[in-house]
Amino acid sequence: PEAADLRSLAKLLLESYLKYFPLTKAKARAILSGKTGDNAPFVYHDMKSLPEGERFINCVGLVQEPTDEVQLRFFYSCQSRSAEAVREVTEFAKSIPGFVGLDLNDQVTLLKYGVIEVLIIMWAPLMNKDGTLISYGQIFMTREFLKSLRKPFCDMMEPKFEFSVKFNTLELYDSDMALFLAVIILSGAIEELPETVSTSLELQLKLNHPDSLQLFAKVLQKMTDLRQIVTDHVHLIQLLKKTEVDMCLHPLLQEIMRDLY
């Protein structure tokens, strides 16, 4: 009976994951491996291709900054997409059994500390060693292009690529990802809640990957790596705020990153 409860928890979280994160790992891998036929993504490979690809960026709630500079417009649309992704993660968090019953301040704390980790984990399936899908899979941005940007922007994505390429070798399914995201969100200050979800993840990994030894331990180990990536990312953003006088940071992202690490 206990295993049945854990399985139903896994099912519930997968349903919620599919509801809030439409670009699943399965879909992303299909796009990246060219299995989507004529719907291949537009490729960003240099500055000239940025304005050409703007028609593919259909971000809702795009920050309307008065700028003609294409790089800045792109930067603001990235921020809008990130804010929207935070909203999606919040809705997913609210669907985790027990989450909304927590004190509201505890919910804020868990989201503040977990949401960037969740976003980086969710980004991993959109990446391969050559680049990343963005804009709901409509655009592929090459790793070389990102590395060619001026400092410090060129340093922003490379650690995420290195992490993602390694993380993707674990070959988790969307159903595993749903549980892992819930574990990340709940693994802040609260002691008892994560146990059920993490036991469910452990069971699920054994069922889904019977030949992959110690997979649960390997997945949990990634949380340590993630914490460092988020810390470095936040420090980089804080540096940008000091050095890039024209840069505006989205208020929701400011809230999350303020006093984070």
Binding site: T90, L104, L111, L252
Partner: peptide, 21 residues
């Protein structure tokens, strides 16, 4: 926390639309 995280609070209490963000 509430004063410093007004948008997060709002997201947690309501299903804020992307446009409101």
């Amino acid at each position: 926390l509430k004063e410093k995280h007004k948008i997060l609070h709002r997201l947690l209490q309501n299903s804020t639309s992307p446009v409101e963000l």
